[in-house]
Design a protein around this nucleic acid. Structure first.
Lengths: 249, 249
DNA sequence: TCTGGTCTGTTCGATACCTTACAAACAAGC
DNA sequence: GCTTGTTTGTAAGGTATCGAACAGACCAGA
């Protein structure tokens, strides 16, 4: 919260978003004047389905849910984005509309946004930003693919555990606000089912739940309850910074 | 089958793959010498999980399944690609590995492949190929997101109907080879469940099933049985060619 | 014509999950 | 304190789907 690039020299170490932090200093300096601090407010909607993307957002804390809205109004979360990523990258594809609902799931002061046109111009320079955004986009597609398989075969208990672990990683804390109602929606499950599963985890001492506030007590065992998708997606995203060796010139 | 760019002048109208066909003649001409005809053989594996991407493929017929392999060996299909798309686009992200198993689901003589390095070089020119590939990648991510929600909430019957309709569109025929065993795998469902559901559709006169050969008899009613995801994903992909107006310069 | 393999149809019991409904705990404001 | 709204807990009946197992149909090759 305290460290925030503001005074004169923006050392990359003070940059909360990891995509931006990975940029070489000169690239970041060129970008910095266009970055607008934009605090993420809980439940705030960043994109509505079918709307044009005016800004891309680089969270430095909290996290953002990308949600598919079905014909009957049900919403299912398809991805969560924290400081390891960005939303609105589809602005690359000029004129493309965001098919999803994108909303703030956990508030944070630390977030910057960039006008879509600026972002696109920067991407077309084909520099470090392009590289890291490209890697992130690919990793995100991999994450969503894993989730597709996950939703087809894994139990609500596994997916709930996975969700909590992912949320913890994004938030960077073991405690955060979350209603069971909302969690059920995100998982595409019925609320009573979530209550039952959460009760099991609670009695097992892995979590505690108290009126919209959840705490993770034992991450290790929770990981054992979760499906492999937690590790798989974590690894996919980790590869975005741990830049792999180039396969071809 | 008959029309195939071979003699001297490659008019775009003879190009089976729609991404390639959308290129301006001069762009296509530059690419053409590098395109290697590469027939798709049934069940052929194009990428294994974790492998480097050496070639990108532009199907002109048949279709390709992108499949996530889970820890227990189960496989779930996360996308199908026909002549409206390509596979291996992740080669854009230099050195990136394909996290999925990618295999030929329906054979076709009409397919071209391009070495990853050539593809990347061409992408970096930032021409028409870049534009259309970028649009397609974004659309594909949208399709996978829709599938994530679909798998979380829709019934096997709905998803099965959706799958058959999509396959029909890809193949361009109402009749194609497909075992229930395989279909069950793709849907992440149990094989007896597929048999039951297929039986219902068969008795309703919408399809016929005969030893690995399926025919769609009534597409309209089948669409009614399917979830909205069929239309949604079809529309997403259609937007790749029906190039939308630019939102910003 | 037999035989082996593959595919589909069907059974049955088990179970995960849904839907609806309602009750209890809690928080915040009056 | 009381009241109201929100959140969680719980119950009951129903349904979709799974898993294992087996029988029958069909095909291909010996």
């Amino acid at each position: 919260m305290a460290k925030r690039r503001s005074s004169g020299s923006p050392g990359p170490s003070t940059i909360a978003n990891r995509l931006l932090a990975s940029l070489p200093p000169d690239e970041y300096r060129r970008l910095a004047p266009h970055l607008e601090p934009y605090p993420l407010v809980l439940k705030q909607v960043l994109y509505k389905p079918g709307e044009a993307v005016d800004f891309v957002y680089f969270p430095g804390g909290g996290f953002i849910s990308v949600v598919t809205v079905l014909a009957n109004g049900d919403m299912v979360e398809v991805a969560t984005i924290g400081n390891e990523g960005m939303v609105g990258g589809s602005a690359i594809a000029a004129g493309y509309r965001e098919p999803t609902l994108t909303m703030v799931q956990m508030a944070s002061e630390k977030c910057d946004r960039l006008p879509a046109a600026t972002f696109r111009r920067e991407i077309e320079r084909h520099g470090a930003l392009y590289e890291v955004v490209s890697r992130f986009s690919h990793a995100l597609t991999g994450v969503v693919m894993q989730s597709t398989a996950c939703n087809a075969t894994h139990s609500v208990e596994q997916r709930l555990a996975r969700w909590l672990l992912t949320a913890r990683d994004r938030v960077g804390a073991d405690h955060f606000p979350l209603t069971q109602e909302f969690l059920a929606m995100m998982l595409g499950a019925a609320r009573p089912t979530v209550t039952i599963v959460a009760g099991i985890l609670q009695r097992a001492g892995l979590i505690t739940y108290r009126r919209g506030q959840i705490s993770i007590l034992k991450g290790g065992p929770l990981e054992a309850v979760s499906c492999e998708c937690y590790q798989v997606t974590t690894a996919l995203l980790a590869n975005v910074w741990r830049r792999p060796a180039r396969v071809r010139a």
